[in-house]
Design a protein around this nucleic acid. Structure first.
Lengths: 335, 335
DNA sequence: GCGGGCGATTGCAACGTTGTAGACTCCCGA
DNA sequence: TCGGGAGTCTACAACGTTGCAATCGCCCGC
């Protein structure tokens, strides 16, 4: 039923290997032979068996994308960007969700399914720096995110500290001084939360604004409900604030929801800036000012690096690429 | 470097085939042998070569998911559900985006990458019923969506007509009678838009409310911006309405945005119901009443049907499964 | 005691492809 | 005329796995 090289070869009157050569673009083939083979391929509808090719060549033509959750719009949009970039390189992408859980991340790395990929893009959210030395990547890996550094892999990330500082400065420039850092994690130093909090502190210090513990609030795991809940608790506790720097957009949407419920106006009473610039930020009410962390640049760079490693540059030193960010100003900060 | 059956066999002091048997759960193995093999597997960290297995067995252990766009939250959430369901069956999922474009859908089906899958879940949005007879699926296929019927494949879809009718009735029960059908497509009969419009008409007729052309508005391709634009145009044209049945949630969010800009209250002036019940519906302001079309049921059923076909039930007649829906009432209809 | 059957294990071949090495032809320059 | 190189094509083996059929030993029932 399925057509193999053998049958194409028979139809074209050449050897199997010649058909293989034509298909793989080998240079020294006469025009006559090439035409005959191409005709036979077209007539029979031949398509290569990728398992056989993979077995022989050691390459599958697929890469894995390991992310926490597609329900999270940031990762869904990142996945879309990765797929577009991968298809430019002729690579298929298969996706594994980890739920952002350390145990599941390790399980996915150890899973035999990963062997279906020539390499993986691994967006770390469960492992942390302590794992960097011990974690074993089953195949060539490019790391995404801010949880692990120096783990012996190329790494693409965003300018978290600089972007967070710029976001906070943006709020300060509006004249706000009681700025909530929404989504901080008290004991995290590296990781998105730690880095963004650092940028926040830097901006406050530079502006001479006192850092207040009660304005730094945890809202794990950064879902809408967490943002809403945290803001409700702040309001209930009577903590005064006039701006929110949400560590991602989803938290920001939740925060806006809670503020709206409380009858507070955005940006009149509270200005809000998010982080990620997901599609929804353009259409929320009010439209959300956010940090565009350079998602397409991240995806394209990561795929390019991975494809290069797979292609054989195994001796190149590991690269750490930080994508450029920009502030996208919208209504939630009075833009 | 990579460990093969040969080395495990040597370490365990048995034949290659015995190792293979242990790994594949063959029944008649002595406890002693099984333990020895399992120890060798663990010691050496053996993992099967999936290309070789695929070549030999004709199965890759992966399925393809063909969808328009991960940026669309409905499809992102569907993809997440599909992956959870697939991993229950031990299947990897790779995703292809088509942009909802007919030419790209055909291109993806013809792509050699599809041969990496034992089967595909194909969410059709570009092809239409006229293609049903001619389209050739490269591998076992389960269709999703409402564009094509009777194309010689299992098919999982939702109760569009019934759900749309229920949505419209819900608005009517609130006392609304000038209900916009947002996202209709004038010349579509089957397809989501056609079916949902039919349910809308049925509900109006049953309630004795006249059908008005000016309340049926196109908003292709159902993005937030399209919903916002369509509502702005309605308002600008002075068309009076007191409710909106948006054919998906994204349109509904856009519509709410435009209404808010115009100073109209939801649900006070205009009640809104959406369709899809994406995560965001719970957190929009106001929270959006929506139709939950049974996404998990769709994903689980589709994966189960596909896995069964792959497993060999090639003679079973094709199934058309319609998932159950329910209305999730929230603030946008005064819940 | 013997044949039959079953449990446990194995060798062989094959899946479809590509890397390696080599065969063959033709043409050019010495 | 002949050697050598470039161009074209091919045979063979191998990638790591599993299906098939066979082998071997043991126990059971007659």
């Amino acid at each position: 039923m399925t057509v193999t090289l053998r049958e194409v070869a028979a139809a074209a009157g050449v050897s199997i290997k010649t058909v293989s050569n034509v298909i793989n673009g080998y240079a020294h083939i006469s025009a006559r032979t090439r035409e005959a083979v191409e005709k036979a391929v077209a007539d029979l509808g031949y398509q290569p068996n990728l398992s056989a090719r993979g077995l022989r060549s050691g390459r599958t033509g697929a890469i894995g994308l390991v992310i926490p959750d597609l329900k999270n719009p940031y990762f869904a949009e990142l996945a879309g960007s990765v797929m577009r970039a991968a298809s430019q390189h002729g690579l298929a992408v298969f996706v594994e969700q980890t739920g952002g859980d350390r145990a599941q991340e390790l399980a996915v790395l150890a899973s035999p399914r990963m062997r279906m990929a020539d390499g993986i893009l691994f967006s770390v959210t469960g492992l942390d720096q302590a794992d960097a030395a011990t974690v074993a990547f089953p195949v060539t890996t490019v790391l995404l995110g801010e949880r692990i550094f120096g783990a012996g892999a190329d790494h693409v990330t965003m300018k978290n500290v600089e972007a967070a500082r710029a976001a906070t400065e943006h709020l300060i420039e509006l004249g706000r001084s009681r700025i909530v850092a929404l989504g901080a994690r008290p004991h995290e130093v590296s990781g998105s939360a730690g880095l963004r909090l650092r940028g926040y502190r830097e901006a406050l210090e530079a502006a001479g604004i006192p850092f207040r513990d009660e304005l730094v609030v945890d809202a794990t795991p950064w879902h809408r409900a967490d943002g809403a809940r945290a803001v409700r608790e702040l309001l209930a506790a009577g903590t005064g604030f006039d701006a929110v720097f949400a560590f991602n957009d989803t938290l920001a949407f939740g925060a806006m929801r809670a503020l709206g419920d409380a009858g507070l106006g955005v940006p009149r009473d509270v200005a809000i800036i998010g982080f990620d610039d997901v599609d929804e930020a353009r259409y929320s009410m009010p439209a959300l000012t956010s940090i565009d962390p350079g998602r397409d640049e991240i995806a394209e760079t990561a795929v390019r690096l991975l494809a290069a490693r797979i292609g054989g540059d195994s001796t190149e030193p590991f690269v750490l690429h930080e994508a450029a960010f920009r502030i996208v100003t919208r209504e939630s900060t009075g833009g």
